[in-house]
Simulated scan of single mutants.
Amino acid sequence: MSYAEVNGINLYYETHGSGRPLVLLHGGLGSGEMFYGPVLDALAEQHQVILPDLQGHGRTADVDRPLEIPTMGDDIGALIAHLGLEQPDVAGFSLGGGVALQVGIRHPEKVRRLVVASAGIRRSATYPELLAQQGQVNAAAVEFMKETPMYELYQRVAPRPEDFPKLLDKIGAAMQVDFDFTAEVRGLQVPTCIVAADADMCPPSHFVEVFGLLDGGQRDGGWMGEGRPKGGHALAILPGLTHYNVVDSPLFATTTLAFIDAE
């Protein structure tokens, strides 16, 4: 368990296992230990897994700046440099998936391969009823959150447990900001696996569209794989899962390892 002063933030991270490094980024209102506990042993069996807590989450105290996914991508880019990691693989889920994508977009020289799970690249791709629910996330929701694992975790590990209402305000504000990373994804140079549950927060068609931006699904793959996407990209829609249990599934670990360990 360690801290790194990077990009103006005291970023908490922990390390598990040994081997080629894999930076693993958690979802919103959680931490690495909360989201990846069920699959961590499998991922760390042959890899050194680095689990950071993103800005304002888990054991990383918040700082005086908005919660912005590109900025958090810069945090992780700075952490990679701070730790002296030579092109680790980077994987993330939901909020962490968006951050992982930004690391690949903004710091491609620092990443070997990316796994981006359950992270839409346009706000409008999220189902409308979920956008309406996200609009209700703010400090006033604290009482409703007190029986949740997210609140319990924050109270147990956060440097300033009293900041939970501020985190809700910030993450609620962040979810109201429109975004569209279509152009950036189209130019992505890092081999990337797009992962989603078959009943995720965005429809499967959105993740197929993202794969299409990466030259996927344009032609038959060929007997020798000669027709696969030119950049080494891949797509995985995991069956029988939702946004809320996809990273708990052995399928997530198997898919991630198959992609990052491919020749």
Rank of each mutant, 00 (worst) to 15 (best):
P159T: 02
V157Y: 07
D178A: 11
F181N: 12
T182C: 08
P165E: 06
D180N: 10
T192P: 06
P159F: 03
Q189N: 06
M175Y: 12
T182A: 07
G187T: 12
V185E: 00
P149C: 09
V177L: 09
V177D: 06
E184H: 03
F179P: 07
A158H: 10
G172T: 03
K166T: 15
D163R: 14
M150Q: 10
D169A: 04
V185Q: 04
D163K: 12
A183F: 00
P165S: 07
G172A: 06
F179Y: 13
R186G: 15
V190Y: 08
Y151I: 02
Q155E: 01
I171N: 13
R186P: 12
V185R: 06
D178N: 10
F181L: 14
P161S: 05
L188T: 08
M175R: 11
P161K: 01
I171L: 15
M150N: 10
M175S: 12
M150T: 10
D178C: 09
D180A: 11
F164P: 00
T192R: 05
P161E: 04
E162L: 04
K170Q: 14
F179G: 11
E162V: 06
E152Q: 13
A158R: 02
G187C: 11
A183P: 00
Q189M: 12
P191W: 01
A174W: 11
I171S: 12
Q155C: 01
R186T: 14
D178R: 09
V185L: 03
L188R: 04
M175A: 10
Q189E: 13
G187E: 15
E184C: 04
P149H: 04
E152W: 10
D178K: 09
R156C: 07
M175I: 06
D163P: 12
T182H: 08
Y154Q: 03
T192V: 08
P165W: 00
Y154N: 05
V177H: 04
Q155H: 04
F181R: 14
K166A: 15
P191Q: 06
P159Y: 01
K170E: 13
V185G: 08
I171E: 13
P149T: 07
A158G: 09
R156E: 08
L167M: 05
D163L: 14
P159G: 00
P159H: 07
A183V: 02
P191S: 10
K166M: 13
A173M: 12
P149K: 06
Q176C: 14
D180M: 07
D180G: 11
F164E: 00
L153Y: 11
Q155S: 03
V177S: 10
F181M: 15
L168W: 05
Q155G: 03
D169S: 07
T192D: 01
P149E: 00
K166D: 14
P161Y: 01
K166N: 14
E184S: 04
P149I: 08
M150K: 11
G187M: 09
Q176M: 14
K166S: 15
R156T: 03
A183K: 03
A173N: 13
G172I: 02
A174T: 02
G187S: 14
G187W: 09
I171P: 11
P161R: 02
D178T: 11
A173P: 12
P149D: 03
K170D: 12
L188A: 10
L153S: 07
P159M: 00
Y154L: 00
E152H: 15
P149R: 05
E184W: 05
V185A: 02
T182V: 08
R160T: 13
A174P: 00
Q189G: 14
D180I: 09
E184A: 10
M175N: 12
Q155Y: 05
